[in-house]
Structure formats: structure tokens, C-alpha cells
Design a protein around this nucleic acid. Structure first.
Length: 762
DNA sequence: GAGCACTGC
């Protein structure tokens, strides 16, 4: 073995991992100080815009070019399809206000644009901008952000058609795992997270002349950070124009935040929806929901029904009950036939597609019409739109993420929705014709108890990644950063503390080399640090797999009809060390020739594994691996499970629990939370010390995805964290004291041995 | 002896 390698090995015993990792990070960044973002943009001048003066054009100017026979952006002749689409575009509500839009756009740096659903804002406004900003003449780009990948892709495809260009050329999109743009691209649809990543390398977003933040009212974490950033960038870059696009309710807040930016509002195009409230409070919303759906089916005219519930189990249960009851209605009251479909995120795509099936045909020529009933989570509120819905049933609840900074736990809680959500849900009934929305709460409750807006994500999340991102964005003073809604100080403190223990931030709160390197990975900082540290334990290939698997939805599938068989299948992959290595086994067999021969889909079905999660994990893994290669982080592999467990301990040292003496449960280190190991674990007996991937608050406090570790590793790998002065008195502290004592004794013995050896040599 | 709302890099 090379000298270099043995030197690294030596280091493992002498230094804490944090130090090794920090050194590796310094080295990697010394070699690659500025990661390349993209290729250079080209200028394009077909002469078609010769008469245009940038930021002084009118709707008339633009429309005459649009009506021409030559595509001003490509120089090619327009297709027939182009003119067909153009006709439709001219009917959109935004079109009537094109001039008004241009005047505001030209007169100001930042504007707020309010457009309801169906106004055409997402497809048209960026095009209005193109004809006035003329990015192709200045070698710049117009960006339009979306909270979701599918939206970015499908809108880009639509706009490419509208402009009669090839997708990926003048109009493109950029999302994780796929960049469909070229150096000709002048309009780029992208996810908000993607723009944020670009900002981390180019703080002034210099390649863009206009940035449009669409769906800003959704207040995703990325949108919120981008808004704060853009507010600063706008001062440094007076030439940059910014458009915030949102639904009505929030408009004033956005205006105010952006120093009273002008606002333009365009009506939407939807049909009226009549709202009905229950006269009194409904104790059992599930029961009330089912009764309402049945009543609609028995008494209302033709039209499909959409019922909002909170989660998979509730939805499947309601589907069964409604199907049964409807059968009875058909038999006894001669009602029309129904198809009941569940809809939630973890449903396989081919099942999700079923919601677009046509409603069932009437049973006989003069019978009553058939109806489609869709029972859905919040996914149908924003991500998926279903035409043909006429009746919406809204019990007023959804599962929402909440963060408790005191115990550092994110969890899902069934909570009342906001007024904005309720309005959005009701709107789903009016997409094709006038509809009705049945709210299963009183009008009084709607007015007095529902909050106006759901809390933005930034107030409900662990902010470790966010703080690291902000630091990487060059924002040093987080305390005075102008958030639209500032997070709780305690949440910020927790994030800073965590990043400091991970050595991503120095004691002064400055970004360290390790912090800069960690921010390159699209991962939770803890996982990024673990990955960066893993080559020192000779197992970066293994940790790559494990990290990828824990950053995607669970790979284990457990259908209600075959729980036992699914559990048995899982046990075939079980590893005595714990759940992390079990995940690794799954991945390695997924990649094996055997699985390939059987066919990956079939193999996954046979083994009760999620094909979708495993393929996503594979994409994540290759993305992470590319970043490792880019920074020359060693890719190596081990045959010793202890190496893997040590590498895990080096990352998860803040998520440790110790078995309680005498009783069944565990106590988390430092916070002394009483927890149980989740029953899904493969661990047969309870180890004294475990690291865990997540803390889940459901019927009880559980820790999920756990691996047994040796406590001596922990105190050696993360001495700063295991400085016991910061621990509360108790069993855990006593045990740790003993561990530290024994580690120190061992060290002294070894030191004296070493001394004797060197004396002998001398 | 349980349950993953939904996104995103």
C-alpha cells in the first residue's frame, strides 16, 4: 500500500474525523476554487428587432412581430401551428393588459404581478418580457422559477411551442438531474431550488437580466430565500429587473416587502363556485365527509366529486367505504354508477393516471349519469389539476410539517388549513363549469378560526441547510437578514449550533472549508459531512449508497393486504448491524445481475421494494458521486462493516440514543428524550448505543433507521460535541463519563507502549 | 409492533 494511504490510516487514530474532514475539504477547495456554472451565452441578432428600443417597446410593436411570417428569434418561417396557438393566446385575460404590463415593467425595477388561475400569467408574462427586454441582443437570459419540476418542464414545452422554437434552444428548462438549455437559451424555466443553487456560485446572478419568481404565494423555502437575496441583489444590480408573481391574497405583503413595488392585477378565468357551510361543528370529519359525498351522488346533477383528506390510510379507508355505500345507492335508489379513485403522492404513477379516466357510463340509456369520485391529499390542491370536477368536499384539514426547535424534531401534524387553502380547494370545482364546494365546518369557523395564510415553510423547518446556503450566498449577518417572515431566533440558534458542531461554521460563525464543500452537495449538512468524511474510513462508495437511500422516500413497500409477506421479504436483506447496512444490502442487490435478469420492475415487486425510490436513489447517488469526483474526494470501498458503522457514527454523532437501564426504551443523548426504536427495525435485540436517522412523532416517540455503534467511536470522532460540560446530569452523562475515562486510559497505555518502543529503537 | 402531506437541490 502506498505511503500516502498508510498516512491517512494513521490519521484516523490520531485526530478526530472532523479534523481529517476539514483538511480534505481545504485540499479539495484549493484544487477547485470556483466550480464552473455554465457555458457562455451567445448574442443573436436577426435584425428583426432593429426598430425596437430596449425597455421602450409597446404591445403594438411586439404584436406586429408576432403576426409576421418570420420568427424574430430564429429567422425561420413560422409554422401553421404557431398561428393556431397565437389565436388562443390572444384570448387569454393577460393579453388585454399587455400594454399596461409593459408600462409598469419599464417604469420600475421590481414589480408584483397578480394573476388568478387561468389568466395565462406563467406562459405569457415571460414572453411579454422577451419582446421588451431583448435578452438575445445583450447576451443575457430571462429566468422564470417554479416550485415544482413538472411545472418547469411542462410550461417550458408549452412556451417553446408558442414561440415556435425547439425546446432546449431559445426556450429551455433547468431542473435537478436535467438541464435542457443551450447557449442560445433566452428564456429559462427552472425550479426555485435550482436558481438558488446557481446563486450560491454567482451571488449577483449576472447572467440574468430579468428574474420572474412565479407562484411566490406558495412561499417555499427556496422562494423565501430568493426573495431576500433578490432584494439585496437589486441594490447591487440596478439593471436587473424582478417580477414577483402571486395569487391575490398575498399581493400587498409582497408589495410592502419590496419597498412598495407597483402592482398589476389581472383577473382569472374560472367559473363561479357556490360555497356551502355546515350549520354546526362536525366532530367526526371523516364520517361527515363520506356522508356528504354520498349525498351529492344521490341528489346532485352530473359532475365529478373531489374530496380532500389528509393521508394515505384515511384515503384508502374512505375509498372502500364510499364504494360499498355507493353500490347500495345504485341498488336501492337507482343512482348512477361511480368510480372511486384514491390520489396521493406515494401512489405509483400508473395509478395516479387513473384519475384522468372518463367518468363511468350510465348503466342503461335512460339511467342516471355516472360519476367519478376522487379522494385526494393536498396534492390536488396545487400539484395536480383535474378537469371536470364540479363538486368539492373540504373537511378543512391537511397534514402539515411542524418543527420543534427545542427537541430538534420535524413532524407531520393533522392541522386546520388556512383560508387561502380553502379558497384554492373551492376553486378546484370551477375549472370547467360552475361548481359547488361543501365545507364541513361552519361559516363562523371559517371566518374566525382559520388563519389567512398557511405558515411559510421557513417557519416550520429545521434551518441547518438554509443557514449553510445563506452563508454560501455570501450573507454573513444572518441576524439582520431581511426575511419576509423571520424564523424564530431559537430555530436559527439551533441551526448555527448544529453547523458549528459539524465544523461547517467556525466558532465565529464563519463558513469553514468544510462548510463550503458541504454546501456543494444537495444534502442535509449532516449527511454531506458524513459523505465527505467517509473516504477516511475506506467506504465512500458504501456511504454514497446509504446517503442516497436515506434522502429518498422509503424503499420498503408495505401494502395493507400483504404486510406479513412484505416484512418477511425485508428480513432477507437484514443485516445484524442495523438498518443502514440493510439499506445498503437492498441497493447492492438492486444493482446485481440477478435483479437485472429478472427485470428491475419485477424484482422490486417480488421483494416488496419501491422501484421509484430505488431509481431515484440511483440518480441521487450518481449526482453525489460526480460531485465527489469533481472535488477529488476519494472513492473507496471496504469489506469491513465496522468501517461503515464508524463512518456513520462520524456523521450521526448528534443523533444518538442510549438504552435505558432496566426498561425497554431509549434516551436520546443531550436532550434526554424518551424514545422507542421503531418497530420497522431489523435489529433483533436492543444494543446499548444506537445512532438514528430520524425522530418520528406519531402515536409514540420513535427513532427510525437505527444502527448499533460503539460509544468509544463517538467520543473519539466528535470530542467537541462530547464535551460533557454541556450535558444534563443523568444516566447518559454517567455512562459517557465512563466511556471517556476508558478511552483515555487506553490512550495512556498505548502512549506509554509507543514511548517504550521508540526508546528501544533508539 | 408501526404508517410517508407536499415539494426542492
Amino acid at each position: 500500500m502506498s505511503e500516502e494511504r498508510s498516512l491517512k490510516k494513521q490519521k484516523v487514530s490520531d485526530e478526530s474525523t472532523a479534523e481529517i474532514v476539514a483538511e480534505a475539504a481545504e485540499e479539495a477547495l484549493r484544487l477547485h476554487p470556483h466550480p464552473q456554472v455554465d457555458d457562455t451565452l451567445v448574442h443573436h441578432d436577426n435584425g428583426e428587432f432593429a426598430k425596437f428600443k430596449r425597455h421602450q417597446t409597446t404591445a403594438y410593436d411586439a404584436e406586429s412581430l408576432e403576426n409576421n411570417t418570420i420568427n424574430p428569434f430564429t429567422g425561420n418561417e413560422f409554422s401553421n401551428q404557431y398561428f393556431k396557438i397565437l389565436k388562443g393566446r390572444r384570448d387569454l385575460p393577460v393579453h388585454a393588459q399587455r400594454n399596461e404590463f409593459l408600462k409598469v415593467f419599464q417604469s420600475t425595477q421590481i414589480m408584483v404581478f397578480v394573476g388568478e388561475t387561468g389568466s395565462g400569467k406563467t406562459t405569457q408574462i415571460p414572453q411579454f418580457v422577451l419582446f421588451d427586454d431583448l435578452p438575445h441582443l445583450t447576451g443575457s437570459q430571462v429566468a422564470c422559477t417554479q416550485p415544482r419540476r413538472v411545472a418547469a418542464m411542462s410550461v417550458a414545452a408549452r412556451v417553446a411551442d408558442e414561440l415556435d422554437v425547439e425546446l432546449g434552444q431559445e426556450v429551455g428548462y433547468s431542473i435537478r438531474f436535467e438541464n435542457k438549455t443551450s447557449n442560445k437559451t433566452i428564456l429559462k424555466y427552472m425550479t426555485d431550488g435550482m436558481l438558488l443553487r446557481e446563486a450560491m456560485e454567482d451571488h449577483d446572478l449576472k447572467r440574468y437580466s430579468v428574474i420572474i419568481l412565479d407562484e411566490a404565494h406558495e412561499r417555499t423555502l427556496a422562494t423565501d430565500i430568493l426573495m431576500g437575496l433578490l432584494k439585496q441583489v437589486s441594490i447591487r444590480r440596478p439593471d436587473l429587473k424582478i417580477i414577483i408573481m402571486s395569487a391575490t391574497l398575498d399581493a400587498e405583503k409582497f408589495q410592502k416587502y419590496f419597498n412598495d413595488a407597483p402592482l398589476l392585477a389581472v383577473p382569472g378565468r374560472t367559473h363561479p363556485v357556490e360555497i356551502y357551510y355546515t350549520p354546526e361543528f362536525q366532530r367526526d370529519y371523516l364520517d361527515a365527509a363520506i356522508r356528504t359525498v354520498l349525498q351529492i351522488h344521490a341528489t346532485e346533477d352530473e359532475g365529478d366529486i373531489l374530496l380532500f383528506l389528509t393521508g394515505e390510510e384515511e384515503i384508502e379507508d374512505a375509498c372502500r367505504k364510499i364504494s360499498l355505500e355507493c353500490d347500495e345507492l345504485i341498488r336501492e335508489q337507482d343512482c348512477g354508477p361511480v368510480d372511486v379513485y384514491p390520489l396521493y403522492g406515494s401512489l405509483p404513477p400508473h395509478q395516479q393516471q387513473k384519475i384522468f379516466n372518463p367518468a363511468p357510463q350510465k348503466l342503461r340509456p335512460n339511467g342516471r349519469p355516472g360519476r367519478k369520485i376522487i379522494i385526494s391529499t393536498n396534492i390536488a390542491e396545487t400539484s395536480l389539476t383535474i378537469d371536470g370536477i364540479v363538486y368539492v368536499v373540504d373537511p378543512g384539514f391537511s397534514k402539515q410539517k411542524v418543527y420543534n426547535p427545542r427537541i430538534r424534531v420535524e413532524s407531520l401534524l393533522v392541522s386546520p388549513i388556512s383560508k387561502a387553502s380553502a379558497q384554492q380547494r373551492a376553486g378546484r370545482a370551477g375549472r370547467t363549469r360552475p361548481g359547488k364546494c361543501f365545507r364541513l365546518y361552519t361559516e363562523e369557523a371559517f371566518k374566525k378560526e382559520l388563519i389567512e395564510q398557511s405558515y411559510p415553510e421557513i417557519l416550520r423547518s429545521n434551518l441547518a441547510s438554509t443557514v449553510l446556503e445563506l452563508k454560501k450566498l455570501g450573507i454573513d449577518d444572518l441576524v439582520h437578514f431581511d426575511f419576509m417572515d423571520p424564523p424564530a431566533p431559537e430555530t436559527m440558534m439551533r441551526a448555527l449550533e448544529e453547523l458549528n458542531y459539524l465544523q461547517c461554521l467556525s466558532d465565529e460563525g464563519d463558513l469553514t472549508a468544510l462548510g463550503r464543500l458541504s454546501s456543494q452537495f444537495p444534502l442535509d449538512p449532516m449527511l454531506a459531512v458524513m459523505l465527505i468524511g467517509s473516504p477516511a474510513f475506506n467506504c465512500s462508495e458504501e456511504i454514497l449508497s446509504i446517503v442516497s437511500l436515506i434522502s429518498v422516500p422509503s424503499v420498503f413497500v408495505r401494502p395493507a393486504s400483504a404486510r406479513k409477506r412484505a416484512d418477511e421479504c425485508k428480513m432477507q436483506f437484514a443485516h445484524p448491524d442495523g438498518d443502514h447496512v440493510t439499506l445498503l444490502n437492498v441497493y447492492e442487490q438492486f444493482q446485481s445481475d440477478d435483479a437485472l435478469q429478472i427485470g428491475l420492475h419485477q424484482w422490486c415487486r417480488d421483494n416488496f421494494l419501491s422501484y421509484r425510490s430505488l431509481t431515484t436513489a440511483k440518480s441521487v447517488r450518481s449526482q453525489l458521486r460526480r460531485i465527489m469526483e469533481k472535488f477529488d474526494l476519494e472513492l473507496n470501498s471496504t469489506s469491513r462493516e465496522d468501517d461503515i458503522r464508524k463512518a456513520l457514527a462520524a456523521g450521526f454523532f448528534m443523533q444518538v440514543a442510549k438504552k435505558k437501564s432496566g426498561s425497554k426504551g431509549y434516551l436520546t443523548i443531550k436532550d434526554n428524550q424518551e424514545v422507542l426504536i421503531h418497530p420497522s427495525t431489523v435489529l433483533a435485540k436492543d444494543p446499548e448505543w444506537v445512532i438514528y436517522n430520524e425522530f418520528v412523532l406519531t402515536s409514540k416517540n420513535y427513532i427510525r433507521t437505527v444502527t448499533a455503534v460503539n460509544p468509544e467511536w463517538l467520543v473519539e470522532l466528535a470530542p467537541k460535541y462530547y464535551n460533557l460540560e454541556h450535558f444534563n446530569k443523568g444516566d447518559v452523562k454517567l455512562s459517557l463519563e465512563r466511556v471517556i475515562d476508558s478511552v483515555e486510559t487506553k490512550k495512556r497505555v498505548e502512549d506509554s507502549k509507543d514511548k517504550k518502543k521508540s526508546k528501544k529503537k533508539a
